[in-house]
């Protein structure tokens, strides 16, 4: 409203001076080029003066105000990180938790308690001595089922984040060999239920990578879990870690049912589940590989599968050493 009023004012004044100048130039005996120039200069000076006193002043103060608010905004951005220690709860209020995140939180806490206690029962000498073999086997099953709940919840959470473009990376430098070692230690329990063995084969001097450790952990977890689930009892699962000048590569090789050529093409898409009966027997959401591929994409890496039916599959991903 105010802008259009200003434009109207300028136009009115402009028209008045054109008319004035026109009359003045006619009062001078003849309309020479000289009087025309005087008229033009007159109009320009008037417009210029008008702009300087009204319009420009307003414009400059607007710009100053914008600058001020920008600086304030910048300050407040900096403050959130450094010095605004006084405001309570500010960080949590700014986030609107969606129903899936809340559900995930509520499910994960009790399940991590189950996992904690099963771990104590299995590995703490104080308890494990008093547990017979059958009970031990059952506790292992409880443990592996709670792992399943975890990865399900994690998958739903991540799929939602991907859908809403909210998945972002927290890069840190870490040693992927250590990470793979930790994950394999963790999953040996699950593999031992199916009498499977997980082996690690690695090149020497694998360089550190800069990546989102938790998300890469999730990818590796996912690949190994698939290998366990889709391989028969007693199978060997091999995790290979290699590198070249540009990439570190992690490959998970199983000796399972394998994946048909048609399925291979669609295996990284959302909610994909194979029609293969053997594969169907194993539960799943069809989200794990989809999320894994998105995570690897975000790292500018590459994930792929090679497989022959009934001979097994190898899932491998490459991550750039220097992101």
């Amino acid at each position: 409203m105010k802008d259009s009023y200003n434009i109207f004012k300028i136009l009115m004044i402009f028209i008045i001076f054109i008319v004035l100048g026109y009359f003045i130039s006619f009062r001078v005996t003849s309309f020479s080029s000289f009087t025309f120039i005087i008229w033009v200069v007159f109009v320009i000076i008037v417009i210029f003066l008008y702009l300087v006193f009204f319009k420009l002043e307003a414009g400059i103060s607007d710009k100053l105000k914008n600058l001020e608010s920008l600086l304030k905004h910048k300050d407040s951005l900096e403050e959130t990180g450094k010095s605004s220690y006084s405001d309570t709860n500010s960080s949590l209020e700014s986030i609107e938790p969606d129903i899936i995140s809340i559900t995930a939180h509520e499910i994960k806490t009790p399940v991590s308690i189950i996992k904690g206690y099963t771990d104590l029962l299995l590995n703490d000498s104080e308890f494990s001595a008093g547990i017979n073999d059958k009970a031990r086997e059952y506790i292992k099953r409880i443990d592996s089922s709670s792992n399943e709940i975890f990865s399900l919840v994690e998958n739903f959470l991540n799929a939602t984040k991907i859908e809403n473009n909210k998945l972002s990376l927290n890069l840190e430098k870490f040693n992927i060999v250590d990470l793979v070692g930790d994950i394999v230690d963790n999953m040996e329990n699950e593999a031992s239920i199916k009498k499977q063995h997980i082996l690690i084969k690695k090149m020497k001097n694998i360089p550190m990578i800069s990546a989102d450790k938790l998300k890469i952990e999730e990818v590796i977890n996912n690949l190994i879990e698939n290998a366990i689930n889709y391989s028969p009892e007693g199978a060997d699962i091999t995790v290979l870690i290699n590198f070249d000048a540009k990439f570190v590569e992690v490959a998970v090789k199983d000796t399972g049912f394998g994946i048909s050529y048609n399925d291979q093409k669609r295996i990284f898409s959302k909610f994909f589940r194979s029609d293969n009966v053997n594969i169907r027997k194993v539960g799943g959401t069809g989200l794990g590989l989809y999320i894994s591929s998105k995570i690897i994409d975000m790292h500018h890496g590459n994930i792929s599968v090679t497989s022959n039916e009934n001979e097994g599959s190898t899932f491998s991903f490459k991550l750039p050493i220097n992101v």
């Binding site: 959130t80 990180g81 450094k82 960080s91 949590l92 700014s94 986030i95 938790p97 995140s101 995930a104 939180h105 994960k108 806490t109 399940v111 991590s112 996992k115 904690g116 771990d119 975890f150 919840v153 994690e154 959470l157 909210k166 998945l167 972002s168 927290n170 930790d182 963790n186 938790l214 952990e217 999730e218 977890n221």
Partner: peptide, 29 residues
């Protein structure tokens, strides 16, 4: 329990030395 990236980033800015997801980390880890 929930990996809100915004909160994690904020925690690091304030000076946290690290963070763990309850879900993906066993107490031993």
């Amino acid at each position: 329990a929930v990996g809100y990236d915004e909160i994690i980033k904020q925690a690091f800015q304030i000076g946290a030395n690290g963070y763990f997801l309850k879900s993906s980390s066993l107490p031993n880890q």
